[in-house]
Simulated scan of single mutants.
Amino acid sequence: MEVAVNIHLPFTKDVIKTLKAGDNISVSGVMFTARDAAHKRMAEALAAGKPLPFDLTGQTIYYAGPCPAKPGRVIGSCGPTTSCRMDQFAPALLDLGLLAMVGKGDRSDAVADAIKRNGAVYLAAIGGAGALYANAIKQADVIAYEDLGPESVKRLVVENMPLTVVIDCFGNNLYRRAS
């Protein structure tokens, strides 16, 4: 994958405005993992008026449930999960300041609308390339919901993680372009 842009996380809206659907980028910095069970718990926390495990403002959530690390490794295989499973939760999180989501597969119209409304971005990771992504992860720490095992919320420090912009902040969707 030829990388067009190298970005340091967290994203800013100014950087996001430069990204277009179809761009190949490389990101370095901090992002968080959260999948189905973690999203459900975050929604429950919000409904109960409780704080989330991390401040969403400007952050990136990677839809991944990493495998346990082998000896001498930071993390095990860490490929993306299917993003549409988080679609019921994503608009609310975007409205609270989340700026980027990483996963695989298309998103619902409601998520695409929330991305555009909030000046955010949806990025794709390559399904089946969990070992590649594990190599880009330099640090991984569980910060919430440890009882969920692989689905706990983790703070990741990544370096040169290759991703593709699927839905840009203008609403352009790489998966829905006319051929």
Results as ranks from 00 to 15, higher is better:
38 A>M: 10
51 P>D: 05
89 F>E: 05
12 T>I: 01
152 S>V: 12
128 G>F: 10
151 E>C: 01
17 K>C: 07
1 M>S: 14
63 Y>C: 09
71 P>H: 05
135 N>P: 06
73 R>S: 14
8 H>T: 15
150 P>L: 00
19 L>C: 07
89 F>C: 03
179 S>R: 14
131 A>W: 15
32 F>R: 09
78 C>M: 12
141 D>H: 13
13 K>E: 13
130 G>E: 09
81 T>P: 10
79 G>N: 09
31 M>Y: 00
20 K>F: 05
12 T>K: 02
58 G>R: 10
39 H>S: 06
171 G>I: 05
134 A>T: 10
147 D>K: 02
93 L>H: 06
113 D>K: 10
127 G>V: 04
101 M>C: 14
88 Q>P: 09
53 P>H: 13
99 L>W: 03
160 N>C: 11
177 R>W: 09
123 L>N: 04
14 D>T: 14
97 G>D: 13
40 K>T: 10
54 F>N: 05
173 N>I: 02
137 I>L: 13
109 D>W: 05
174 L>Y: 08
96 L>A: 15
98 L>F: 07
82 T>Q: 07
173 N>L: 04
122 Y>K: 06
96 L>Y: 14
3 V>H: 00
103 G>Y: 04
14 D>F: 04
24 N>Q: 13
86 M>P: 09
3 V>F: 00
151 E>K: 04
40 K>M: 09
89 F>G: 01
137 I>V: 15
93 L>F: 12
58 G>Q: 10
44 E>W: 01
16 I>C: 14
34 A>D: 00
97 G>F: 08
55 D>R: 07
148 L>P: 07
169 C>M: 12
97 G>P: 07
94 L>W: 04
88 Q>H: 09
138 K>P: 02
136 A>Q: 07
179 S>L: 13
131 A>I: 15
86 M>S: 08
117 R>N: 09
151 E>L: 01
107 R>L: 02
122 Y>W: 08
101 M>S: 14
174 L>E: 06
30 V>E: 13
108 S>A: 04
125 A>K: 03
